[in-house]
C-alpha cells in the first residue's frame, strides 16, 4: 500500500536537504562538537557514525533546534536553523533517543497528539493516523498505553510518530539501539523505504554494520570532530585493512616496540595501561611478517600476536591515532 504524499518529484531527490557548516558546541570546558560540516541529500540515508559520546546526539539536537548552535550554521531544505527555528520544526521529524512518545497515551493517541500539534486538519489527520498504523503494523498494540510496550514496539511508534506530518527531512537518533536483531532488520527496511520515497534521512548510530547496510553516505565522527566521510564503499575500502595486534611480554618494551615497528615503515598505537600494540596493515601478510621480524631482531619479547579483521575501534585507531582510549 502506498501513499502518494510520501512520493516526491525526482528532482527533489537530488536536492541537498541538510547543510551543516562548521557546527560547534561546548558544554562548559568540554567541546562536544567541533567544526563539523556535512550535507545530507533527499532520497538518501546519511549516517553519522561514532562511539558513545562522539557528539552525534549534540549534532542532531542542534540541527533539530533542541540546542542552540554555538558557532557555524545549518540549514534544512534551505531554511536557516538558527534564524527560523519555527519554520525548521515544520519540515523535520525527530525520533530516537532525543525524542520519545507519551508513555501514558496509546499509540493512536500519541499520533493524534502530534498530528494536532502539526496543525494537520482533522479529516486528513484521522486518515493519516489510520494509514500509519496499518502501514507500520502498529494495529496489535495501537490502543494500548505506551508504557506497556516492548522495546521494539515503543521504538517503532517513536519512528512512526516522527512521520505524522510526512516531513521531507527525518532525523533518527540511534533508532535501533537496544533492539533485537529481527526488529532491527525490520526497522532498517522501513527506514530504507522512506529514503527511497524521497525523504532525507539523517541517522546516528554506533554500529558499523548499521551505517554500512543503511547509509548512502557516512560521516564518521569522534570527540566532536569529523574523521572521515564518504560512501559506504569508499570507507569500506579503507576499513578492509587487517590489523596486527601484538602483546609484548614486558610493558617496558612498549616504547621500544613502537620504535621498532616505525623502523619497518608501519604505524602503531599502544594501549598505555596495557601491553598491547595495534598495527593497521597496509601491506597485508608480508608487512605483518616484516613487523614481527623487526621486533624479533630488536630483541623485544612477544607474548602473543594475532591478525584480525578491523572493528569500528580500529577504524578510529587508524583515523585518529589515539590508541590510548581503550
Amino acid at each position: 500500500m502506498t501513499d502518494a504524499s510520501e512520493r516526491r518529484s525526482p528532482n527533489a531527490e537530488d536536492a541537498v536537504a541538510v547543510v551543516a557548516r562548521g557546527l560547534s558546541k561546548s558544554f562548559g570546558k568540554t567541546r562536544a562538537v567541533s567544526d563539523l560540516s556535512f550535507d545530507a541529500r533527499s532520497g538518501e540515508v546519511t549516517g553519522l557514525l561514532g562511539p558513545n559520546g562522539a557528539g552525534k546526539t549534540t549534532t542532531i539536537k542542534m540541527l533539530t533546534t533542541l540546542l542552540p548552535i554555538e558557532s557555524g550554521n545549518a540549514s534544512i531544505v534551505g531554511i536557516d536553523v538558527a534564524r527560523r527555528p519555527d519554520a525548521v520544526r515544520r519540515v523535520i521529524g525527530l525520533a530516537g533517543q532525543s525524542a520519545a512518545v507519551d508513555e501514558k497515551l496509546t499509540a493512536r493517541e500519541n499520533l493524534e497528539l502530534f498530528g494536532r500539534l502539526y496543525k494537520i486538519p482533522r479529516a486528513e489527520r484521522m486518515k493519516r493516523v489510520d494509514y500509519l498504523i496499518e502501514r507500520f503494523e502498529l494495529g496489535d498494540f495501537a490502543d494500548r498505553v505506551a508504557e506497556t510496550y516492548s522495546g521494539g514496539q515503543r521504538r517503532r511508534l517513536d519512528v512512526v510518530a516522527s512521520l505524522i506530518a510526512a516531513p521531507p527531512v527525518l532525523f533518527l537518533d540511534e533508532p535501533t539501539t537496544g533492539l533485537d536483531p529481527h526488529t532491527r532488520t525490520e526497522l532498517w527496511s522501513e527506514i530504507r523505504e522512506l529514503a527511497d520515497r524521497g525523504t532525507a534521512v539523517v541517522l546516528t548510530t554506533q554500529y558499523l554494520e548499521e551505517a554500512d547496510r543503511l547509509s548512502d553516505s557516512i560521516v564518521i565522527i569522534d570527540e566532536g570532530v569529523m574523521k572521515a566521510s564518504g560512501t559506504s564503499a569508499d570507507l569500506k575500502r579503507d576499513l578492509e585493512r587487517e590489523v596486527l595486534e601484538i602483546h609484548v611480554a614486558d610493558r617496558k618494551d612498549l616504547t621500544g616496540a613502537a620504535a621498532s615497528i616505525a623502523g619497518v615503515g608501519a604505524e602503531s598505537s599502544a594501549d598505555p595501561e596495557g601491553t598491547r600494540l595495534q598495527v593497521p596493515l597496509t601491506g597485508g601478510a608480508r608487512q605483518s611478517l616484516a613487523v614481527l621480524r623487526g621486533l624479533d631482531a630488536d630483541g623485544i619479547a612477544i607474548a602473543d600476536f594475532q591478525l584480525r579483521k578491523p572493528t569500528l575501534d580500529d577504524v578510529f585507531l587508524a583515523m585518529t591515532s589515539r590508541g590510548g582510549r581503550r
Binding site: A87, R89, I92, L94, S98, A99, D102, L117, A161
Partner: peptide, 13 residues
C-alpha cells in the same frame, strides 16, 4: 525528565 518533552520542542507548536 521524559523524552516526550524533547519531541514537543522539535514540533512546530
Amino acid at each position: 525528565s521524559e523524552g516526550v518533552t524533547d519531541r514537543f520542542r522539535s514540533l512546530p507548536m
